[in-house]
Design a protein around this nucleic acid. Structure first.
Length: 876
DNA sequence: GATCACGCGG
DNA sequence: CATACCCGCGTGATCT
């Protein structure tokens, strides 16, 4: 078999990995990003190259023989960050576990080890691959040796063969040292010849081949200035070349047959991966799942076929299992109960046939602890059981403690709180098409574990909530809200399916016509819905200018198409086709698919434990993104109607809630004044930013000011604003500067919140919701910037979410105490939608704004607008 | 089944 | 050296 040697520049790859990846932490607080990157790169090389021999070379000490030539060598380099240094021992351990040789020699660099070994190997007839992040190594390239230099990422490399080098620079690999000698290398602090860069160096080498030749005939060089420079720096050029030259006869005392790659030590690797928390890699090794099963502890429980009063106690945890995620449709597959008397499993049928169950479930005073109260309430409600007395909800508690722990999987929550292991639902039930209910015993045991875990977790979580000053957020806000959401979902929204079908038929016809027209204009038939095919038509066939690219091809997004509008007639048709196609597929067809047959109602599910800011989200269908901005889409809302004859849809929304929240938390005097005086905030912003009087504000100025206000709320960047206004980044930056000068309180807030987040590691909302931002200290510009913007935005968006949630709770209470029939149906972030009997309209006009505006007292008034009509469309 | 581009909402 | 404002969900195309 052919012999293949892979030589890896260990330091260089570790550095690359460290800077390319976010600063990952494992559960012991060790940083692991460089180790992880190094590992994935190794895996890839082992798989793709299948080397027979392999070695990783490291730099040894601080100084090398090069320092005796030039003591400034590698001077001015940043010290290795401690977060990286601490990872090197693990990388060594990792290599040992892989059974990969590693090597370093005092006084020499990894480069020299690689240079020496590659030469030896070439002579022995090996094929050699060198892997590094340092382009210096390309000088080793030959017909037997290929050099791979990592690109942006770590697993992506650029391959340097002599041919490639010739094409790229027009020189042979052995002239790279001359090139370096002339142009220098700032990263290694090699001086070179001042004023000579890559272009000049290559030009000179093409003429003279080597530095030595060149220096002998400096007078033949064109350009007086250049001649002088070369003359002045003769010695420096020769020294630089020497510094850049990789030694090919370093005192390397490893023989090639000692670095043969045989196999890794599976056990050692697994142990190491486990310690580091590399679960994805463990899984690749067929671990992980099996691992968890091993740790399962014995549990004693009873399968009941009749529930009696004595099965219940003062404190109980109740777990309800549903397989498919839509609990409005799917059936309960089993339930479990744990309390001081024991752990029990029972089927839905058993529960329904036991009067004691219903009696207990509906008893307000019987305390229950559940995993997902909304699911529990709705799923039992469908069987005529009105679940009451819920005092704890693990899903919500866990979400409040840390919204980024996505959470819907019980096993992961249990693990996070150091509970005895529970199998993942996926491992018990399977997933996707293969999902099924296993035999009862298996389900029973799984659920028994959950109920038991739930029972003990209440205490842990409550303690933690109290410690974080979030207990009130849990008991007074999220938990009561869950019950309100349950009712909203269960009530559902009535839909005029006839109207939807009518619109669908009409649209189908129009789309058909437009499709023909577009194909005609394109001169061929293609799938307009395929960005890929559309890109080919527009940018290749019709040769329209390419404005933007995505990573997979041409961008055909609306903002790109709008820029092409004047260039070709087809663009308008495509934009229109897209717009109508969206309405057709997502809204008309989409909504019709989820209407319940007998009732003509839609029952969405609000996810209360998902968003990072505290907002709700809505799925199956998403009723928080029904069109409104364009008239044609807005008409969809005509199909949302009250569920009773003679009722109306009543909608109330907060005006500028996020900017009001900003005024409050930033405590910005000018912004507070503006809201107190009920000014048009965008006009006011325009006045301040542009320094004009109210009458001088043009509509364009107001539009720009509005975009700035949006940007401020989002955690502004000059890029983002420039995109939304179609101006240059510089101009956008100027706007932002002027805004922050106009509203100094806002500027102070933005600066302080970022500092605060860096120090604490999280930001909070008015009602103590938290969002952790570990990446705010990252060295990676993107990650850090993102975290900084998030730090600015989350308290604003999250506090607004807190406010409307509080309003919902008070609104529900108010409807009850006032004995009203009106029902809350939907929440759309800053808006509440009710259905109401006509007779109650006057009452709602009074109490809805009152409740919403007084949900929380801020330094500025909250303002609510409302409206009503026979359909949601008319409530505008 | 997963991922991407795109577009709808606040 | 390129990056690229917040928070979401659903669709169709495409690749595996």
């Amino acid at each position: 078999m052919d012999k293949k040697l892979v030589l890896i520049d260990g330091n260089s790859i570790a550095y690359r990995a460290f800077f390319a990846l976010p600063l990952l932490n494992n559960d012991k607080g060790i940083h692991t990003n460089a180790i992880y990157g190094f590992t994935t790169m190794l895996q890839k090389i082992l798989e793709e190259e299948r080397p027979t021999h392999i070695l990783v070379a490291f730099d040894a000490g601080k100084t090398t023989f090069r320092h005796s030539t030039y003591k400034e060598y590698k001077g001015g380099r940043q010290k290795t960050p401690p977060e990286l240094s601490e990872q090197f021992p693990y990388i060594r351990e990792l290599l040992d576990a892989y059974g990969i040789a590693r090597y370093e020699i005092e006084n020499y660099e990894a480069d020299d080890i690689i240079g020496t070994l590659s030469l030896t190997a070439e002579k022995d007839g090996y094929e050699v691959k060198v892997i590094s992040g340092d382009k210096d190594l390309t000088q080793l390239s030959s017909d037997k040796t290929t050099v791979c230099i990592t690109k942006k990422g770590i697993t992506d490399t650029e391959v340097y063969t002599p041919k490639h080098i010739e094409e790229k620079w027009g020189i042979t690999p052995n002239r790279i040292i001359d090139m370096k000698g002339l142009m220098g290398d700032s990263s290694d602090n090699i001086p070179g010849v001042p004023g000579v860069g890559e272009k000049t160096a290559i030009k000179l080498l093409k003429q003279f081949q080597t530095i030595e030749n060149l220096l002998e005939s400096i007078d033949e060089v064109s350009g007086k200035k250049l001649q002088e420079k070369l003359e002045e720096n003769k010695q420096q050029a020769i020294m630089s070349k020497e510094l850049a030259t990789i030694l090919r006869e370093a005192p390397v005392d490893v023989k090639l047959d000692e670095i043969e790659y045989k196999e890794n030590d599976q056990n050692k690797l697994k142990e190491l991966f486990k310690e580091l928390g590399f679960n994805s890699l463990l899984e690749k090794m067929g671990e992980g799942v099996e691992e968890e099963q091993q740790e399962l502890q014995e549990i004693t429980y009873e399968i009941l076929d009749k529930l009696e009063r004595e099965h219940f106690a003062d404190q109980n945890s109740l777990f309800i299992e549903i397989l498919e995620d839509n609990y409005h449709l799917a059936e309960i597959i089993g339930m479990s109960l744990h309390n001081e008397n024991g752990t029990y499993y029972f089927s839905l049928e058993t529960a329904l046939n036991s009067p004691a169950f219903k009696e207990w479930a509906e008893d307000e005073r019987a305390s229950k602890n559940v995993f997902d109260s909304k699911l529990s309430v709705v799923s039992l409600n469908r069987h005529g059981i009105d679940l009451k007395g819920i005092e704890f909800d693990l899903l919500l508690a866990s979400y409040i403690l840390n919204p980024s722990d996505s959470g819907d999987d019980f096993a992961s929550i249990a693990r996070r709180h150091h509970q005895p292991a529970i199998q993942t639902d996926e491992s018990v039930y399977g997933k996707g098409a293969k999902q099924k209910v296993p035999e009862e015993k298996i389900v029973a045991e799984h659920l028994a574990r959950k109920a038991k875990s739930l029972y003990t977790l209440e205490k842990t979580c409550v303690e933690e909530l109290k410690k974080n000053d979030q207990y009130e957020l849990f008991t007074e806000l999220e938990l009561p809200l869950a019950l309100i959401l349950a009712e909203m979902e269960y009530t559902g929204v009535k839909v005029d399916t006839g109207r939807l079908k009518e619109m669908k038929t009409e649209l189908a016809e129009r789309l058909q016509e437009m499709e023909i027209k577009i194909h005609e204009l394109a001169g061929e038939s293609f799938n307009i819905n395929s960005p890929k095919q559309l890109g080919v038509i527009l940018f290749e066939k019709l040769e329209l200018p390419v404005i933007k690219k995505t990573k997979t091809g041409y961008s055909t997004s609306a903002d790109v198409l709008e820029k092409l509008q004047s260039k070709h007639e087809i663009i308008d048709y495509i934009l229109r086709y897209r717009q109508l196609g969206k309405l057709q597929s997502t809204y008309l067809e989409g909504l019709l698919k989820v209407v319940h047959e007998n009732t003509d109602k839609i029952h969405t599910r609000f996810n209360q434990a998902l968003t990072q800011t505290g907002r709700l989200s809505s799925i199956d269908p998403n009723l928080q993104n029904i069109p409104i901005r364009l008239e044609e889409g807005r008409k969809i809302r005509q199909a949302f109607v009250p569920s009773h004859e003679g009722w109306v849809m009543f909608a109330a929304d907060y005006s500028q809630i996020e900017l009001r929240v900003l005024a409050h938390i930033a405590n910005d005097e000018k912004l507070i004044d503006a809201f107190k005086n009920n000014l048009d905030i965008h006009t006011k912003t325009a006045m301040d930013v542009f320094g004009v009087s109210k009458d001088e504000v043009t509509s364009n100025m107001r539009r720009q000011a509005k975009a700035v206000n949006f940007g401020i709320v989002y955690g502004i960047s000059d890029y983002g604003l420039s995109q939304s206004l179609g101006i240059t980044r510089k101009e956008a930056g100027e706007f932002i500067k002027r805004y922050l000068e106009s509203f100094p309180g806002v500027k102070e807030y933005m600066d302080e919140i970022v500092q605060d987040a860096k120090q604490k590691g999280f930001v909070t909302t008015l009602l103590h919701r938290r969002r952790y931002l570990p990446e705010i200290t990252s060295r990676n510009f993107n990650l850090r910037s993102f975290a900084e913007r998030t730090a600015m935005n989350t308290p604003i968006q999250g506090s607004a979410a807190d406010i409307i949630k509080k309003a919902m709770i008070e609104m529900a209470e108010r409807l009850k105490t006032e004995n009203l029939q009106s029902k809350l149906l939907l929440q759309v972030h800053d808006e509440l939608i009710f259905e109401a009997p006509k007779e109650e309209i006057e009452k709602l006009k009074e109490i809805v704004p009152e409740v919403m505006e007084n949900a929380l007292e801020l330094k500025v008034p909250l303002k609510v607008d409302y409206s009503y009509g026979p359909t949601w469309y008319d409530a505008k």
